[in-house]
């Protein structure tokens, strides 16, 4: 082991020992939750459509808790949902009643915070050099996000907007009892196009997916053609036709006028620069040069704002590490008074 590796190994071991010690003594990463009991009672007579009345966490309005208590167990559905809770609420509850079971330490969420921290550090490790940690994190993010998008597309679009239109009865009986749609067989078209699109995954007949692709591109072009011409072309010209001499309360406003002249003039010189049908020589060349200057100011502003954005993104990750994981700070009073 060379000297450099030895130093780094010692640093990592010390940091690891510190983290283990702090986590064992309860000083970091712990996540708490509140157990909320749900109970519903079917008050309908035997053979009728079920009519579920909420008994927990609070009794539904217009119902008597004693009356609901009389129903047998087979008329009941109950479960417990675990909501996130701050440490200060857990501590208060334990102080009042050491045997309480409403506020609990969540093992799975505490592991989750540790995992998040490890993932965060694994990605940051790329700043030092590419490593196995970064590659693992990269593989996980690609896998999880692709599946996440698929799941959301399935439950938010495919089920209610496609299957729910073609066969509302199936969707009602299966996953969305609240769906109140009528069958519309026109939706066979997107079903067929969708199936053709997925054909691309098949080893043969790749051309089949060109039909849905053609539809996709046609709609995209149709929407964008009108949208961009209206909002980004015509409207922008309209927005730029403004008085160059600005009068306020009947008197000449120098700064307002200068601003209008610079705005309209700046736009025109930039457009001259973008005009490539003429060679940029003579007066056109000089105007185009000023156009470049205006564009450079625009890019400078863009750079300044981009820096702003990037830093805030780093700040939120460090806040997570310092606050949720290491408990070095408590800006949102989650552990106030601890």
């Amino acid at each position: 082991m060379d000297r450099k590796t030895l130093i780094w190994t010692i640093v990592f071991l010390l940091a690891g020992a510190y983290l283990v010690l702090r986590s064992m003594t309860g000083g970091m990463a712990r996540t708490y939750m509140k157990a909320v009991d749900f109970e519903f009672v079917n008050v309908a007579a035997d053979g009728d459509e079920p009519e579920w009345i909420q008994a927990k966490p609070q009794v539904a309005a217009d119902h008597d808790p004693n009356e609901l208590a009389n129903y047998p167990d087979e008329n009941r559905q109950s479960w417990t949902r675990y909501e996130s809770a701050p440490l200060k609420k857990y501590a208060k509850a334990v102080k009042e009643d050491p045997n309480q079971t409403t506020y609990l330490l969540s093992i799975s969420r505490t592991i989750g915070v540790w995992l998040s921290a490890m993932f965060t550090l694994a990605i940051f490790s790329f700043l030092y050099k590419d490593s196995i940690f970064y590659k693992i994190a990269e593989a996980v993010v690609v896998g999880v996000s692709a599946a996440y998008w698929m799941v959301v597309a399935f439950w938010s679009t495919i089920v209610p907007n496609l299957i729910g239109k073609l066969s509302p009865a199936i969707v009602q009986a299966w996953a969305m009892p609240g769906l109140k749609e009528e069958q519309n067989l026109l939706y066979i078209v997107p079903l067929v196009l969708g199936a053709m699109l997925l054909w691309q995954l098949a080893p043969k007949g790749g051309w089949i997916s060109r039909w849905p692709l053609a539809f996709f591109i046609g709609v995209f072009c149709g929407i964008r053609l009108t949208g961009y011409m209206h909002g980004d072309f015509l409207y922008q010209i309209g927005n730029s036709i403004i008085p160059l001499v600005v009068m306020v309360n009947g008197s000449f406003d120098f700064w307002g006028s200068l601003r209008a002249v610079l705005l309209v003039g700046g736009l025109l010189v930039c457009l001259v620069y973008f005009f490539f049908s003429f060679e940029h020589k003579g007066i056109v060349g000089k105007t185009a040069k000023v156009g470049i200057w205006v564009l450079m100011i625009t890019f400078g502003a863009g750079f300044g704002y981009t820096v702003m954005g990037r830093i805030a993104l780093l700040a939120i990750r460090l806040e997570f590490l310092f606050d949720d994981w290491l408990w070095l700070m408590d800006p949102t009073d989650k552990r106030l008074g601890m």
């Binding site: 409207y235 863009g302 704002y305 820096v307 954005g309």
Partner: peptide
């Protein structure tokens, strides 16, 4: 909007967009 997007939205103000918050500032 994010900082990256903010400068490109100014041409829409105020006719198409009445107000804009750019980045964390």
């Amino acid at each position: 909007v994010t900082g990256v997007m903010a400068p490109q939205q100014y041409p829409y103000i105020p006719e198409q967009l009445r107000g804009l918050l750019g980045a964390i500032k």
